[in-house]
Design a binder for these strands. Structure first.
Lengths: 200, 200
DNA sequence: TCATAAACTGAATAGATATTCACATTATAG
DNA sequence: CTATAATGTGAATATCTATTCAGTTTATGA
């Protein structure tokens, strides 16, 4: 039987070790994926013995879930903060999209780790995107009510918007090496499409 | 040293075994993912001995690449067939989006298997989406030339459109159990957004 | 029919790798 | 200062799994 709880460290030393292991895991999960990373790899990267891992995490999967949960929480919080101050739906949309893309560019690990949940525990993945969609739907319904948005099916629209930001985020992460990716320009193009459509 | 070639079977019997193994693998890769599926699982599902696997495929990864390559080829071909007969960009777009979503609904394995390539061999994934994007960009550039499309950055637009169809496809696959998903209605919503945007 | 090639078998191999545990070191409270 | 708890160690364990191979069965062409 697995204990899935994570021991909260108390002393300064322990807290440090906890974080060192976590950072090492994030780095390796990003580079080589969950299955491509062994517990030995993680502890070696962290500079601790293999056994130390199990003082902090009951299992490899528990560590993964912990990291996933943190990323998932952080990205939502970050977007919410950027959106809150905006008044119109269109401004909220721009702020949210921009926040997501910048965050993905600054935290490319997040991206990989969240998507990989589909192949580690499908329920985690489904939860993540469906709860994301629910929040979106609420905002869109409000915009429909007050006449800002056209009367379109909000659930479909929420997946359209998530699809746009996620794939653009993917592109930005892929292009990380090369550039000079102009995120503001990308956001402008997205907003043009959302505002006026694609065609003449 | 691994031989990555796949033996093309000659006799009718062998052809059958080849396909039985392939089908078993597709089913299991979809259900449990690549790493969650063992060669033993595949051969058991196929009803053959473990050793038989290696008469047809030099390794588990070679089988995966073979399946991925087939799916990738089939989805493109299917979309191209549906798009070919259309004249305007807007009609091509509707036909392509519709074809993709219906195909995803009918072949939910495709979906999982293509995306999982990101965690099996990142180069495969990148190739798949970037070559998809290149084709898209060509079509969009032509539409810009003849004035059908507004003068937007085609590369960004191609990722926007791929993002929309992929996430909607994801939703449709997730909702498989429940229903009665009305794909035509979903396509209508997408086309509305693409034609006129989201806002009043 | 029979010799040979093609298919097939499944136990054995070889290498991983998540997790445990008996012991060692370090920090801390009284 | 010292007893005790908190941290840390790394070799050993137990299990899993891709791949091989020596031998068997089945199909085919002459």
């Amino acid at each position: 039987m697995q204990d899935h709880s994570i021991e909260t460290p108390t002393t300064r030393n322990a807290k440090n070790t906890f974080e060192v292991i976590e950072k090492a895991a994030i780095k390796l999960f990003y580079k080589r994926g969950y299955h491509g990373t062994t517990v030995k790899d993680i502890t070696a990267e962290a500079g601790v013995a293999a056994g130390t891992f199990y003082l902090y995490f009951p299992s490899k999967i528990a560590l993964y879930k912990h990291i996933l949960s943190n990323f998932s929480h952080n990205i939502r919080k970050h977007i919410a903060e950027q959106v809150r101050s905006k008044d119109t739906r269109i401004e909220k949309e721009r702020a949210g999209i921009k926040a997501f893309i910048y965050y993905a560019q600054k935290n490319p690990e997040m991206y990989n780790i969240i998507w990989e949940s589909l192949y580690i525990d499908r329920a985690l993945f489904k939860d993540y995107y469906e709860s994301f969609a629910v929040r979106y739907v609420n905002g869109l319904e409000a915009a429909k009510q007050n006449g800002e948005m056209r009367p379109l099916d909000s659930e479909v629209v929420s997946f359209i918007l998530m699809g746009i930001t996620n794939f653009i985020g993917l592109k930005v992460v892929f292009d990380l090496g090369e550039n000079n990716t102009d995120v503001d320009h990308i956001v402008d193009v997205i907003m043009e499409v959302i505002k006026h459509g694609l065609f003449k």
